[in-house]
Nucleic acid binder design. Structure first.
Lengths: 204, 204
DNA sequence: CAATAATGTGAATAGTCATTCACACAAAGG
DNA sequence: CCTTTGTGTGAATGACTATTCACATTATTG
């Protein structure tokens, strides 16, 4: 019984998404070539028609993650004009993203991803740095327009912003969904947004 | 060539520490029984004289982590009386701890640790929750004594507190030490401590 | 001092996994 | 129509890993 023949680009996409899915539901350790193949409806050896090896699959998964993170930043830029509102929306979007796709934090935080692979470690670092840079840009815009206090380094605030989601996300998946990420995010956003608002600005 | 004979309790300790060390420097995936044995100066099969199986070793590693986290909380309670100062010191200690022992965040955040092991997942959740509960207790004391604003849930602030270190720690190890955790922690602590201080309190 | 229990050793086993290879089939282009 | 190229298959291989077992050695206890 042979699977339908599809173009290599389609398969590469399917495989990367399947891999991210497997990581999300079963962890990086469970990511075997056989498992990904089964998910896509292929036989293990077929994977090698589309990828040189497992490393390349993981590399493509990283690209996928990068794309999704960037898409969120672009989306909030289009949705709102006020930088503080953009950050708020980004927080919400970020939470939705990792809620729907647990594989993302798992890939980023799992050192097994890059232990012994300096290039991959560098790639992960680049993805996170790139995301932080974009967040910092939003902050800087807010500082320029006078909505965010200017006496704080934008980069520092960007990392803090990430800190609003990260422990909550981890608690959420360690607790197997019991921890209320959304509530935590809302409440901590209130504290954070008050803290970064420029003096004289009222609170929403 | 036979290794020195030591009591099982000593060996258990050595093995757990060696395991944490291996995870810290090479990741959870590299944690094989053989590697831990070599680190301790034993032969793989000797591990089974002291542990039923690999799972038990990992369970003991979790106990080790729990002990160290609790030790930090107790230490800052002894060092300072002011809750805000206690939190500040805890932040510093936490950073030192994970800097010296990268295995700790790796074990906690690596879902491979507990994927498919519900009891272990529960144990990790318990460790994190217990730590958060202790941090929240510090916050609550600060609220009672009027040093920390009372209009925020202590548990929410505790998670935020964890958020001050966590992304920084990850950036630090993904960047292979290039990211300046200490600087990030100091600056974000400034923002955070101002944000949680009760109105009318001056800033240090 | 003898006996017993605890600890360490090396070889063997069984399982999993990534990767390779020879072959099958289908579409595209000459 | 036939050849080439791209995609899919199943079997085989080699590496690595956790775990077990029969045996050796050392410490402890009566």
């Amino acid at each position: 019984m042979s699977a339908e023949k599809l173009e290599t680009e389609v398969r590469q996409d399917q495989i990367a998404q399947a891999a991210l899915g497997v990581i999300g539901s079963h962890g990086l350790r469970a990511l075997s070539v056989a498992r990904v193949a089964r998910q896509v409806g292929l036989v293990p050896s077929a994977i090698y028609r589309h990828f040189e090896n497992k490393d390349r699959v993981l590399s493509t998964v990283l690209d996928l993650i990068h794309d999704r993170l960037c898409a969120n930043v672009q989306a909030v830029c289009a949705e709102a004009a006020d930088p503080v509102e953009q950050l708020h929306r980004l927080l919400t979007r970020h939470i939705s993203l990792i809620r729907e796709n647990q594989g993302i934090p798992r890939v980023i935080f799992s050192e097994d991803m890059y232990a012994g692979h300096p290039e991959r470690r560098a790639k992960v670092y680049w993805i996170v740095s790139d995301y932080l840079k974009r967040v910092a840009d939003l902050v800087r815009q807010g500082q320029k327009s006078g909505r965010i206090r200017a006496d704080c380094d934008a980069a520092v605030l960007a990392v803090m912003f990430l800190g609003l989601v990260q422990p909550a996300a981890i608690l959420w998946h360690v607790s197997d969904g019991a921890f209320d990420v959304t509530r935590q995010a809302e409440r901590s956003w209130r504290v954070f947004s008050e803290a970064i608002r420029a003096n004289g600005e009222g609170q929403a």
